[in-house]
Amino acid sequence: MKLKILPTHLRDKKRYLAFQAFSEIPLERDDVISMFTESSGNLYGACGTSQLGLWVVKVWNYPAPEKNMVRGIIRCNREEVDRARAVIPTITNFRGKRVVFQTLGISGTIRAAITNFIKLKASDD
């Protein structure tokens, strides 16, 4: 038996948070995922974290000689945007090194988040 896809009017509505992070060490997508998971678990616990519906959609690396900058997009449930935004500034260190996360903006689609907040060039895709 084939599984049926949930109709669009019954699906949870999503919002996309664009962020940037500066760190002392280079960060990868897996590092960002573990930081968000650990920080939201510390702040809200397992049940609260599951209600947020956090998901790291995409991460772009911008290596510079002095600093390691990462920009990315995370997805969360529409009703939990404020709680998801509260997780971002609580991430302050990773593997004993300092990390600073900032929210760039909130969008309803991935495309709008990329064009308005990430501001990629066509060659960076």
Rank of each mutant, 00 (worst) to 15 (best):
K58W: 13
F22L: 14
V57D: 11
C76D: 00
L27M: 12
M1H: 12
I88Q: 03
W60N: 01
R29I: 12
S23L: 02
S23C: 04
L3G: 10
Q102E: 15
R71S: 06
A122P: 13
I33Q: 13
N116F: 09
E66F: 04
V70Y: 07
A113L: 02
T8A: 15
P7M: 09
L120R: 15
R78E: 12
R85G: 07
P89N: 14
I118F: 05
D82E: 15
E38V: 11
I74L: 13
S40D: 02
V87C: 01
G41K: 10
P65G: 12
V32Y: 12
P63L: 11
T115N: 05
P26K: 14
I74K: 00
I110F: 03
A46R: 12
K119R: 15
I114L: 07
V81H: 10
C76S: 13
R29N: 11
V99L: 08
H9Y: 14
F94V: 08
Q51N: 12
V56I: 14
G53T: 00
N116P: 03
I5V: 08
S107D: 05
L6N: 05
I88R: 01
L3Y: 09
I114Q: 04
G108A: 06
M35Y: 05
V32K: 01
K14L: 05
L17R: 01
G105W: 03
G105E: 06
F101W: 03
G41V: 05
D124S: 13
R98Y: 02
G108Y: 03
I33S: 11
A21D: 05
Y44N: 09
K97C: 11
I74Y: 00
N93Y: 09
R83V: 05
V87E: 00
R71C: 09
C47Y: 00
Y44H: 02
I25Y: 08
I118H: 02
M69K: 11
D124P: 08
F22E: 11
T92P: 01
E80C: 13
A84R: 02
G48T: 04
R83K: 15
R15N: 02
F36S: 01
I74S: 01
N77V: 07
E66Q: 14
Y16I: 05
I88S: 04
S23P: 09
T8C: 10
N61C: 10
T109Q: 04
I33M: 10
T37F: 03
D31A: 10
C47H: 06
I106W: 05
L27V: 02
P89R: 09
Y62M: 13
P89W: 02
I33G: 04
L54W: 03
D82P: 07
I91E: 01
V59A: 10
G108V: 08
F36Y: 03
E38F: 10
K14I: 02
A86W: 03
A113E: 02
P7L: 04
D30V: 14
L27G: 07
C47A: 11
V70L: 13
L104C: 09
N61P: 10
T103C: 02
M1G: 15
Y62W: 07
R71W: 11
M35D: 05
E79Q: 12
H9F: 15
S107Y: 03
V81Q: 09
K121C: 04
W60I: 13
L17H: 03
C76H: 00
D125R: 13
R111D: 00
N42C: 04
N116W: 13
T49C: 05
N61Y: 06
